[in-house]
Simulated assay, not measured.
Amino acid sequence: MLILPISAMTLFVSLPEGATAQLAIAEVIKAGIKKVIKAIDLKIQRLQNQTIWLQNAQKTLENQLSKLKLTEIADWTDRQRNLYKNYYDELWKVKSVLTYYHRIKEMTEKQAAILEEYRTAWQLFQQDEHFTPEELAYIAKVYTGILEASVENIDQIILVVNSFKTQMSDAARLEIIKEASNRMEENHTDLKQFNRENALLSVQRAKSTDETQRLKEIYGIDD
């Protein structure tokens, strides 16, 4: 049973046995990624609008400040000073959150790239007569492990998104982002290396020069 939290929802998906398991995992992750990217896009749009409003308010205040005489500045009330300070504090918070969301979106799109890498290669390997059913089963098993690791990456992304509703510190958010980003890079590197090794194996099993060239073109092997 795979449990994948998506925003306020939780998906419960029964995974099948055997070589098709990773296909089910991939579909769940793909659906989750789409929801996360859409939610992040909406957040970014709102935050950008809020940032523009605050920046305009900041400029207005700065213009007013530049017109004041030194004696008038000295006579500011606490309320006026706090209002000016609050604008800056709020602007800093919005920009900080906006930076987080942009970073999270980059990570989510990276996760989508991992899925695309998997789907393209898996389709080619399944159609490649140079692999035995046993070898395809092994490839499927490796993919399952990588995709299950991807579920954890998605969980971490959602945790950071939801953390803005809690009292999580910036340091904690940055640590989660850093760890998830590192795992994504490892997953992507491992997946690309695994796919290349299998592609080279298929090329080595070619029975003619023409077949070798054809397979290299199919798998995008230059050397």
Results as ranks from 00 to 15, higher is better:
173 R>L: 05
139 I>Q: 14
154 I>L: 15
170 D>Q: 13
165 K>A: 05
181 S>Q: 09
173 R>M: 07
144 T>F: 11
179 E>R: 13
148 E>S: 11
167 Q>E: 09
146 I>G: 00
166 T>H: 08
150 S>D: 04
160 V>R: 04
146 I>H: 02
146 I>P: 00
156 Q>L: 14
179 E>C: 04
165 K>Q: 04
141 K>N: 14
144 T>S: 09
183 R>H: 08
168 M>I: 02
157 I>G: 01
149 A>G: 05
138 Y>L: 15
182 N>R: 11
148 E>N: 12
166 T>W: 07
168 M>D: 01
165 K>T: 02
183 R>K: 10
177 I>Y: 02
144 T>R: 14
151 V>I: 13
178 K>Y: 08
150 S>T: 09
174 L>G: 10
171 A>R: 11
169 S>F: 00
140 A>T: 07
147 L>I: 06
145 G>E: 10
144 T>I: 02
169 S>P: 00
176 I>V: 13
163 S>M: 00
150 S>F: 00
149 A>N: 09
167 Q>M: 06
165 K>Y: 02
157 I>V: 14
139 I>R: 14
148 E>G: 04
172 A>C: 03
177 I>E: 04
141 K>C: 11
153 N>T: 15
139 I>C: 11
171 A>M: 11
177 I>C: 03
150 S>H: 02
152 E>S: 13
150 S>E: 07
154 I>V: 15
170 D>A: 14
147 L>H: 04
153 N>F: 08
171 A>N: 09
141 K>L: 15
143 Y>S: 10
176 I>S: 10
161 V>W: 00
155 D>H: 15
184 M>I: 03
158 I>H: 09
141 K>T: 13
173 R>G: 03
165 K>I: 00
142 V>K: 10
178 K>A: 07
184 M>K: 00
138 Y>F: 15
160 V>N: 02
146 I>R: 00
160 V>F: 04
144 T>C: 09
172 A>G: 08
149 A>L: 05
144 T>Y: 12
147 L>G: 03
178 K>T: 12
175 E>C: 08
146 I>M: 01
139 I>S: 13
174 L>N: 14
165 K>L: 01
166 T>N: 05
148 E>V: 07
142 V>Y: 03
141 K>E: 15
163 S>D: 03
142 V>G: 01
164 F>W: 06
158 I>F: 10
159 L>P: 01
155 D>F: 12
167 Q>K: 10
149 A>K: 07
150 S>C: 08
141 K>F: 14
180 A>R: 07
182 N>Y: 05
178 K>Q: 14
175 E>H: 12
160 V>I: 11
184 M>Q: 06
183 R>Y: 01
168 M>W: 02
162 N>L: 10
162 N>I: 06
164 F>P: 01
163 S>K: 04
160 V>S: 01
145 G>K: 12
179 E>V: 12
184 M>C: 07
152 E>C: 09
162 N>W: 01
158 I>M: 15
166 T>M: 09
151 V>L: 09
146 I>T: 03
